[in-house]
Amino acid sequence: MTPKKRKKDGEDRQGGDGGGDRLAAYRGKRDPGRTPEPVPEEKALPHGDDDTFVVQEHHASSLHWDLRLERDGVLVSWAVPKGLPWSPDTNHLAVHTEDHPLEYATFEGEIPRGEYGAGTMTIWDRGTYETEKWSEREVKIVIHGSRVSGRYVLFRTRGKNWMIHRMDPPADPGAEPLPDSLRPMRPVEKARLPRDQEAWGFEFAWGGRRMPAYVEGGRTRFTDDRGRAVDGPGGLGSRLGASLGARPVLLDGELAVLEGREIYMIYDLLHLDGHPLLDVPYRERRERLDELDLSGPRWQTAPWFPGDGDAVRLAAADQGLPGVVAKRLDSSYEPGEDSGAWRFIPVTS
């Protein structure tokens, strides 16, 4: 960036101590013999065009995203717990952290346990940015990335706490936020399997507690079968949220006890990446849920079997499960309804 352009952008620097060693705080928190992170020995020197940005997904003690902007030979950095906002309707907290070396813009790896920032670091997005304003209290930029682009402003609120606001309209104008609450669809009970089994998908009935999961910004909240907020088992929400990262998702499932352990069994996908899926046929919702590959120590995607209800019912009886749930392959999701498009068939009748 030329001196003329820098004066126009704003003369104040954010982070560091002016003419001193701007990476002193960074080096003081890291042992180069233990961490794979870049730890340059020399003082930071201005080089480059002050136009590089990177967003890194950091699975540390709590999942967050690190926004880093090249400025005067270092990466000025903020930790953003919920990621960059996709809409101007919501501001996200951004906590200003120590300046990082420029080499950090390409860093991915595992920071060892016991070290500062221990956990997995991956690059979520990177590209270039333009500076519209840079002062001690406000930074306005235009980001050009592959996953996020647009005008953003960071403004200081108190101490190290800042907020980040998207100034443009949403990148996806058709995107909708997750609903605050949704009452799950329920099956009606029938004694027999459907005659036209090829038109149905079959799942095990787990006999658990119904708990839709709302995942956004790496965090998860749950509601019960009446749409009321409930707490999930300790650790489930944070781990499930971390597995989905920044993707906003609404899942339907239940907390079941399998072999003495509580497992969250996921069997429907109702909202994905800003788009409701309630009107999408069950077969497509299940296929898209399978593509998410959700499987972890406390959760898993429940299996489903198109067109083979007799075999599923026999397997349910062998495993001591209460029955099977038949779902029409072409059925939409009807929140809060007892619908004949879903049928619960007990293993004994």
Rank of each mutant, 00 (worst) to 15 (best):
V325M: 04
A105D: 08
V324T: 08
D225P: 00
P3D: 12
R147F: 03
K140E: 14
T52A: 13
P187V: 06
E37G: 03
S61T: 15
R6G: 01
T2E: 15
P276N: 06
L236H: 01
L270N: 02
P303E: 08
E176K: 14
G245C: 05
G218W: 00
D49Y: 10
D180A: 12
R283S: 13
E176R: 13
H144D: 13
E37K: 05
Q300P: 00
V215Y: 00
G119P: 01
R6C: 05
E291Q: 14
D89K: 15
F204Q: 03
S181A: 12
L93I: 13
L289Y: 01
E103K: 12
L251V: 05
G253A: 09
S149V: 02
V280G: 02
G296P: 00
A24S: 15
D225N: 11
A315G: 07
D168R: 05
S332R: 13
P179K: 03
Y26A: 04
D168G: 09
Y104R: 10
L321T: 01
D338I: 06
R68L: 12
E130I: 05
H64C: 09
G159N: 09
R239V: 13
P32K: 10
Y116C: 02
D180V: 07
V74Y: 00
S181V: 01
R147E: 15
R221F: 02
F204M: 04
V148P: 01
N91I: 10
R126N: 11
H96S: 12
Q14G: 08
S238D: 15
P170T: 08
R285A: 02
V215F: 00
A205T: 01
W304A: 04
H64A: 06
G201S: 13
A175S: 15
D225E: 15
A316L: 04
S87R: 09
D50F: 03
D66R: 05
M185F: 03
P179W: 04
E259D: 15
R226V: 09
G207F: 03
R261S: 06
M121V: 15
G18F: 09
V347E: 04
D338A: 12
T90I: 14
P81N: 10
H96C: 10
R22M: 10
G117A: 04
L244N: 00
E198N: 11
P38R: 08
P233M: 04
E176G: 04
R34P: 03
V325Y: 02
G28F: 08
D279H: 12
A175M: 06
R285N: 08
R219I: 01
T122A: 11
E189G: 08
E337I: 06
P3N: 11
P32W: 07
H59K: 12
P112Q: 08
P276C: 09
V74C: 07
D310Y: 08
R151V: 01
W65H: 04
